[in-house]
Design a binder for these strands. Structure first.
Lengths: 338, 338
DNA sequence: ACGCTTCAGGTAAGCGCTTTCCTGGGCAGC
DNA sequence: GCTGCCCAGGAAAGCGCTTACCTGAAGCGT
């Protein structure tokens, strides 16, 4: 690998001069020398060593992102927003998948710190785990103490800049719509109980129901993996245990799609016999049959705002932005059969 | 940010000793000193500067990946395979989205070179653009000349290690199945004509049709954006121009889903009036209605193999692996109406 | 008791770059 | 014609780390 010294030697100038022309320094360099340096760069196919540059000129420019899984459509969307803003500002992004493993999340924060990233964005639900939360907060604090910036999306337990989807409001909207359609026997297909996102969505849903005096007994609730298959399995056990349900609330669209698949397989008609609603409004929601009634979260915007918070120095106090949830009515929710 | 020198000072040892205990060097260190160093590390929340480490011990450990767009389900899957292998081997991955912009692709290769990555994986269709291809090859050669490893997925124009999905075979499978079902008036919804992937798939399809003496006139072909909306638009113009078509071949599943949406909107029944087939077998393919008949590509495997090639030093000659395409029969393809 | 080896720990060079500070030649001013 | 200034270009320090090499004390044999 050619170094700056090689370039300088070949151009017959000092490394200082070579560096200056390569970086477009403000210091003037005679045209002839500049010409020679540029020629040497091309001939040697010289590319500056980014690490050496970072050491010499500690100008942090890359930002780290920790998500649960980029290939999950939810995070794919959030990441798109994150990337857009980062790219617009000329920042390189390092994406890390925690696969919902708290330990790995901690490791990545450490690693990103070692990479001297300018900012860390943590996207994805927090965990109901005091020990983990404490350790994470501790690590982030250490990072921030040395000038690092942190922004989170969807984690109210972090004491700093945050962008929050209105998960509880979304749950409430769903509950209200279900009631409006006459449903009283409602089953819930929830994701892992350890995720705060689940708790939040559930809280909103519960609030809507209890405001109307409709109970949500514990046996109407199933916790499963936060994906399509988890949704299908939970729907199966739920329906077996409580045959009287007229509606299924899945706490994300992937699970809802799984539930839909199971119902189709069992020959249960949606929404005539059982209604299904989802959450997130993933691109797929409009394309399944029946099209999913769901709650839309501005995912790309969530990512974009988070990156903006991470890159714009905070004024000191922590900024929390809540992005709205809106109900999207399609065909999977109908009036309750009697 | 605490440095190694800070740690050493606080522990009352030399930087060398501190470095040795932190990195678990083979050189023995007295327990008491080791203890003191570890305590200092904890107290100062010291994390080694990865860039300085890289400079001092030029051990390339991260690998760069350039994809068109991670949030596209196709690349989400490929990336998952890529990541799995990389993580298993303790490699960090830098993901770059080119958004199908050749210029950006070139820039990223340059950037990754500067980052001293151990390997570069280029995933995603190549371009029919001689100038671009030349420049890319040139840059990759420069990188490889300095010990960098390169692997590509889905680009036969790169003269090195490559993993190829059997795009042409997939096209052929689709064509044959269509013929078997009696279709003769076939429309094709293609992605951007500049992508080699499109050409390959088209070639296979054409071969199957021409083997059977069935023509594929140019006006039955539409090039559009390689996504859902592009598929919907192309389906619309195609149907308007050629009302006699009995089947639509979309060159990826996203476009197929778009076509399905358009047909539903126009009240055209699938597959009774018009059949639709896709390509890739994205997760969504099974959940749309009617479920998509499509060609499955082992996407995760594609990524995993590519990363393996990239990390295992090549024996010199270039390795090319072709991964098979298989037909997945579902409901969107039926017999041709007469 | 002396010289040797052994080995824990320290010293310092060097990774590739940026940038401050210095140098020396050219020029204007008197 | 000499002094002083300006400025292009170079020398060198230093970013944070690793590691080859050195040092000095302890331990051994004779």
């Amino acid at each position: 690998m050619a170094t700056l010294a090689d370039v300088a030697r070949r151009a017959g100038v000092s490394p200082a001069t070579a560096s200056r022309v390569i970086n477009g320094s403000s210091k003037p360099v005679a045209d002839e020398l500049r010409e020679r340096v540029l020629r040497a760069v091309a001939e040697l196919r010289y590319v500056p060593n980014a690490h050496a540059q970072l050491l010499a000129r500690p100008q942090r420019s890359v930002v780290g992102v920790v998500v649960h899984d980029v290939s999950d459509p939810y995070f794919a969307e959030v990441t798109r927003g994150l990337q857009r803003v980062a790219t617009d500002r000329g920042r390189l992004v390092i994406i890390c998948n925690s696969y919902r493993d708290p330990e790995r999340e901690l490791e990545y924060v450490e690693m990103l710190r070692g990479q001297q990233v300018a900012a860390i964005v943590l996207a994805g639900s927090g965990y109901h785990d005091v020990d983990f939360t404490t350790r994470l907060t501790e690590k982030l604090a250490a990072y921030e103490a040395t000038g690092g910036r942190v922004a989170v999306v969807g984690r109210h337990e972090h004491p700093g800049d945050a962008v929050m989807p209105a998960n509880d409001l979304g749950g409430r909207l769903l509950g209200e719509e279900l009631l409006r359609q006459g449903h009283r026997q409602i089953g819930v297909i929830a994701g892992p109980r350890v995720l705060t996102t689940i708790t939040d969505r559930l809280t909103g849903l519960r609030a809507a129901l209890s405001d109307a005096g409709v109970p949500l007994p514990e046996e109407h609730l199933r916790y499963a993996d936060f994906d399509r298959d988890g949704g299908a399995r939970a729907a199966a056990t739920l329906l077996d245990a409580c045959p009287g349900l007229t509606a299924l609330v899945a706490l994300n669209d992937s699970m809802a799609v799984g539930a839909l698949a199971l119902l189709r397989q069992r020959g249960v008609r949606v929404p005539e016999q059982v209604s299904v609603v989802g959450f997130d409004d993933m691109p797929v929601a409009a394309d399944v049959t029946p099209a999913l009634t769901t709650v839309r979260l501005p995912l790309v915007e969530l990512g974009a705002r988070a990156m903006t918070l991470a890159l714009d120095p905070s004024a000191g106090l922590s900024r929390v932005e809540v992005l709205p949830a809106t109900l999207v009515r399609r065909e999977s929710l109908g009036p309750a059969p009697r």
